[in-house]
Nucleic acid binder design. Structure first.
Length: 495
RNA sequence: GAGGCUGUAGCUCAGUCGGUAGAGCAUCUGCCUUUUAAGCAGGUGGUCGAUGGUUCGAGUCCAUCCAGCCUCACCA
């Protein structure tokens, strides 16, 4: 144990010997930093508050000391004087940055103009035994805060998120926004009469997406179970069951690589509405997201990365074939598979010989079109081979009624008119099983019970999936999914 | 899975040609009753990610491993 840790344990013992409990039981808080400061009026008679928080800076002088404590809303300065606290003042010597204290006193404004609390009593609520990487900072005249050498090591920040949250207020803010995003969506769907449901995370047959699952084992049933990769097939069973609109905000689990856009567990909104199609869903989702952005930022126009992005409806709508033609000159509607492959190769794409037309189109799109779509864009009408759960296009053969929303070069949602023809659905599943036999581990699995449900009859329906983590990244301007997940997956810590 | 970069004090980082390990902040001691990147003076603090190798001598060169980041591949 190093000197800093030893030192704090010595102080802990001294506190106990002095008769103070270094781990208090409760504190009756009557004020919070932010409101105390904003509501302070110089002409009013002094007000008293009890406030609790963590010490984040200290300036001890001989017979008086200043410190800042941080509570849930922000920071406030404390002023402690020996001639007020008397023998209690000696305890200040045993306080450290990181300790959590409760303080009672009058609010006043210092000579330098900072609203502060003049303490006449304090208690220790939790003695901190580890040094906190707090950092010097200065508020410049225009109100901007300059921080010196902030705690920035990503590995430490993710592994010890509690420390990150204490010392980096911006991080705390991201997760408050994340909560507001989820709450807004839930409220938006609830007030329109859609039912929030819960479906199994442990599934005997996984489905609803193309991905490799995590597996686990149920001891009592002695059976293999999968962690869900999507909730789609269960939610559509509920549409069969007669609910008009259902949604679920839930964790999905995919056993794939990790990078700045992928975490093995992530949060997905899935939403299904009976008697609607994908056109209806386009209108719905652009309205919902525009309202969400307005709610979060008080405007629909926000800076993201290098761009300013405007979420105000109506968003640009393009077909996949139109977008590809515009950005590459390739006409996928009049080009057969071999010619398509040649065209893709001419554009510099490397393709596996097994790649079919759908895969080639998808590759062309994600390589040459998607990165260029900065403003919210609805891209519609996808090849049927890429979308085994979507309904055939009512006009274009070989296509399905599906759309994605691309913002800042990234997909943020995926939606389609749901396939409700059980015979077609069975054929699509069988095609997927063929792919699986040829070694595609991510092909969809045939779900016999889901087919049985469709055979009873499912009304036409529109479905939507929104990756909440990526949406949060977008709306909080974060570059990595790890910055919007409190405890991202990490390799075990070496000791 | 492939390539590149990184790992030095609690935090943020220097460390030259291979020659006794440094700074700022934090921390400690003393002084200081409206300070605020408080100040002044003086200190403490290191398994240089791990293991092995080359060398008279390794933070520095080499190999292997661990962890993180980035790019690519894979992937809704």
């Amino acid at each position: 144990m190093n000197e800093l840790l030893k030192r704090r344990r010595v102080e802990l013992d001294e506190l106990k010997q002095s008769g103070m409990n270094p781990y208090g039981y409760e504190y009756d808080v009557t004020g919070y930093s932010k409101s105390i400061i904003t509501e302070f009026r110089d002409d009013d008679p002094p007000k008293r508050f009890r406030i609790a928080g963590r010490i984040i800076s200290m300036r001890k002088m001989g017979k008086a000391s200043f410190m800042h404590i941080q509570d849930r809303d922000g920071r406030i300065q404390l002023y402690l004087r020996k001639d007020v606290l008397h023998e209690r003042y000696a305890v200040i010597k045993l306080l450290d940055i990181g300790d959590i204290i409760g303080v009672e006193g009058e609010v006043f404004r210092t000579k330098m103009g900072e609203v502060s609390i003049k303490a006449d009593a304090f208690e220790i609520l939790a003695k901190s035994l580890r040094p906190l990487p707090v950092v010097k900072e200065r508020t410049t005249e225009d109100g901007a805060i300059t921080r010196y050498d902030p705690f920035s090591d990503k590995e430490l920040r993710y592994r010890q998120r509690y420390v990150d949250l204490i010392v980096n207020p911006d991080v705390r803010d991201v997760f408050i926004k994340r909560a507001r995003i989820i709450k807004f969506i839930r409220n938006y769907l609830d007030t329109r009469g859609y039912l929030e449901v819960e479906t199994p995370a442990l599934q005997p047959v996984y489905g609803g997406a193309a991905a490799r699952p995590f597996t686990t084992h149920h001891n009592a049933l002695d059976m293999k179970l999968y962690l869900r990769i999507a909730d789609e097939l269960y939610l559509k069973r509920l549409i069969v069951g007669g609910y008009d609109g259902v949604y679920e905000i839930a964790k999905d689990f995919r056993n794939e690589g990790m990078d700045r856009n992928h975490n093995p567990e992530f949060t997905m909104l899935e939403f299904y509405v009976a008697y609607k199609d994908y056109k209806w869903m386009m209108d719905f989702v652009e309205r919902m997201i525009a309202d969400l952005v307005q709610h979060l930022h008080q405007t629909t126009e926000i800076p993201i990365g290098m761009h300013t992005i405007d979420f105000r409806p109506r968003w640009k709508r393009v077909t996949m074939s139109g977008a590809i033609k515009e950005h590459t000159g390739i006409d996928i509607e009049t080009t057969d598979e071999d010619a398509l492959r040649d065209a893709a190769r001419q554009h510099g794409l490397e393709l596996e010989p097994s790649a079919g037309a759908g895969k080639i189109i998808d590759k062309i799109f994600s390589e040459f079109v998607e990165p260029k779509l900065m403003q919210p864009t609805i891209v519609m009408d996808y090849p049927v081979s890429m979308s085994p759960l979507a309904k055939p296009h009512r006009e274009k053969s070989g296509m399905v009624e599906r759309f994605e929303v691309i913002v800042n070069g990234q997909e943020i949602c995926n939606a389609f008119s749901e396939l409700n023809d059980p015979v077609d659905q069975r054929a699509r599943f069988e095609e997927q099983m063929n792919l699986r036999e040829r070694g595609d581990e991510e092909a969809h699995v045939l779900d016999e019970d889901y087919l049985r449900a469709l055979e009873y009859g499912m009304p036409p329906a529109a479905g939507l999936g929104v990756g909440i983590d990526r949406l949060t990244m977008l709306l909080t301007n974060q570059e990595s999914i790890r910055d919007v997940i409190l405890f991202p997956q990490m390799r075990p810590e070496g000791r």
